[in-house]
Design a binder for these strands. Sequence first.
DNA 1: AGTTCGGCACTGATAATGTA
DNA 2: TACATTATCAGTGCCGAACT
Length: 347
Amino acid sequence: MATAKTECSELSVGFGLLGYDKPLEVSFKQVHPKFDNTLNEEKFNTFVNTYPSDIMFASMNNVGIRLRSNYKSFRNLNLVRWTGGDRQAATTSTAKDLLGANIPISVKAESRVVGNPSPYNLFVATPQGSAQAQGMTSWYLETAPQAYQEFYAFARKLTGLDTGMNTTPEAVVEFELSRRKKPLIRAIKNLGEHYPQEFQELYIRMCQKVSQSSAEIFENYLSKSLKSRIRGAVLERIAKMFFRMNAVEYVLCGIDGKNEFAVLIPDLTTWLQTWQFEDIKAIPNLEKEQSVVDFEILCTNKTTKHAYLAKFHAEIRWSHGKFSSVEGKLYKEFNWSDLPFFSVIPL
DNA sequence: AGTTCGGCACTGATAATGTA
DNA sequence: TACATTATCAGTGCCGAACT
């Protein structure tokens, strides 16, 4: 279950796919069987209440309507399964929010985020094609132990957690191993946005170190992998991670860069038959106020030699406030419909 | 209106704590 | 001690808020 907005976006497309261009005029009784029992009355009511709150949902509905008339498999569709309501398994990540005519459909509303992997999975597991890992030590500790220690020490003093009852360990290593991180996280949050300058400076210094180190780690593993027998596996992982491709083809639609869009994303095998990676670069970006690594992926079509440079960037940051767990958010810097290997479904 | 830094909801695992 | 319950945390899904 996601937010009401996300669910409403998905359902708006779903109603459109079923041919309803005025979702609010449809009763639950009518629509319930058409969603194959995947939409309960409570969710239906939430949808009805949320739909009028933003004209974006009407756009989403239109995407569904247009898909129905312009994509042959969806013509005359009278059954759509809504799968966005329940959580996907972590490993078999066939991205899908809806399922129509056995084709998974993923809905996106104005989001540049491609994925939200842990830094370890982005910078270590992906360029090695290895399995997703869990329970790794903090990426800040991994890539910038000294700078992290300095930042931590300052934060500890700043919040008064260096003395007294709630004192946190002196070494970040210990702090990271402990199960008592909340007091510091909360204390930092309570400071509001008004940190002393030195706090910000120490943070930036650490971030720059992390960016550099992360980019290096990625490049090192990648160049090693590309020369080895696991080359194929690694390229598949990269295609999966960066282009959201999967074992089966699916429809990605929604709103991207202010425009309604729908594309058909090929399955990995097909893609690898026609396209190849020419060059993959990870470049630390030191101009930002948080850790950022830019990615540039050059792909070429094997037969036409058509080349496309896809740009991304990853933001390494704490996902629940400073000193919480770390994420490596991956952003695209293009629109999905710009990619020459995603076939655009005309809307 | 685009960019920049950031947040929340949820899951599944495991530690911490409560209770018989 | 042995088991049940709760709290915390990492990881990943979804964008948001606020500044330029």
